[in-house]
Simulated assay, not measured.
Amino acid sequence: MPATIPFKRSEMKRLAEFAKREGVRAEIEVNGFVFRVAPDFNPVRVAVTEESDLDHALAEFDRKHGYS
């Protein structure tokens, strides 16, 4: 039988809202049960031109140093 969560849904929601608002990871521990929440960060997007420039620089490095 699965153990029940030792705190209320409203408490978990409040903790999640706090973590998102403050940009931190938060956790609650009760009787050995740990509930952790962290804000959902969107990955940083690289502009296509930056990625192309990096690809070009790596290809040039490989050509210069004899890598194929």
Score class of each variant (00 low, 15 high):
residue 2 P to N: 10
residue 23 G to S: 11
residue 29 E to F: 02
residue 36 R to P: 02
residue 15 L to Q: 12
residue 52 S to G: 03
residue 38 A to N: 09
residue 61 F to L: 09
residue 22 E to Y: 11
residue 18 F to R: 05
residue 44 V to H: 00
residue 48 V to G: 06
residue 46 V to E: 00
residue 25 R to K: 13
residue 6 P to R: 06
residue 16 A to Q: 14
residue 17 E to M: 11
residue 34 V to A: 06
residue 67 Y to S: 08
residue 17 E to T: 11
residue 43 P to L: 00
residue 45 R to G: 05
residue 4 T to N: 15
residue 34 V to T: 14
residue 53 D to N: 15
residue 10 S to R: 14
residue 66 G to H: 09
residue 62 D to L: 12
residue 40 D to V: 10
residue 45 R to M: 06
residue 12 M to I: 03
residue 20 K to Y: 07
residue 3 A to S: 13
residue 3 A to K: 10
residue 52 S to L: 08
residue 50 E to P: 10
residue 2 P to F: 04
residue 64 K to C: 13
residue 31 N to D: 12
residue 10 S to H: 08
residue 1 M to A: 04
residue 41 F to N: 03
residue 62 D to C: 09
residue 52 S to Q: 12
residue 61 F to G: 02
residue 34 V to K: 12
residue 24 V to M: 01
residue 63 R to I: 14
residue 47 A to Y: 02
residue 39 P to A: 14
residue 44 V to G: 01
residue 54 L to C: 04
residue 22 E to R: 00
residue 53 D to S: 11
residue 32 G to Q: 03
residue 51 E to K: 12
residue 47 A to G: 08
residue 26 A to L: 02
residue 56 H to Q: 15
residue 47 A to H: 06
residue 13 K to E: 15
residue 2 P to M: 13
residue 15 L to T: 07
residue 11 E to N: 07
residue 64 K to V: 07
residue 23 G to K: 01
residue 10 S to N: 14
residue 35 F to Y: 15
residue 6 P to L: 14
residue 35 F to E: 00
residue 1 M to V: 14
residue 65 H to W: 07
residue 26 A to C: 03
residue 67 Y to N: 05
residue 3 A to P: 12
residue 20 K to P: 00
residue 4 T to L: 14
residue 55 D to M: 09
residue 60 E to L: 13
residue 20 K to E: 15
residue 51 E to T: 00
residue 48 V to Y: 12
residue 68 S to W: 03
residue 27 E to R: 11
residue 63 R to T: 14
residue 1 M to Y: 06
residue 14 R to Y: 01
residue 55 D to I: 00
residue 60 E to Q: 10
residue 30 V to R: 13
residue 6 P to A: 13
residue 24 V to A: 10
residue 22 E to H: 12
residue 1 M to P: 13
residue 66 G to M: 04
residue 42 N to L: 09
residue 16 A to I: 08
residue 25 R to H: 12
residue 19 A to I: 11
residue 44 V to C: 01
residue 48 V to S: 08
residue 62 D to H: 01
residue 5 I to F: 09
residue 5 I to L: 07
residue 43 P to E: 13
residue 11 E to M: 01
residue 52 S to T: 15
residue 38 A to F: 10
residue 47 A to C: 06
residue 25 R to N: 07
residue 14 R to L: 02
residue 40 D to E: 13
residue 28 I to P: 00
residue 45 R to I: 09
residue 52 S to P: 04
residue 65 H to N: 05
residue 28 I to R: 01
residue 64 K to M: 15
residue 24 V to C: 04
residue 6 P to K: 05
residue 13 K to N: 15
residue 26 A to E: 02
residue 11 E to Y: 13
residue 12 M to T: 00
residue 8 K to D: 07
residue 13 K to S: 07
residue 21 R to N: 06
residue 2 P to E: 12
residue 13 K to Q: 11
residue 65 H to V: 00
residue 60 E to N: 05
residue 16 A to F: 07
residue 26 A to V: 01
residue 68 S to R: 06
residue 8 K to P: 02
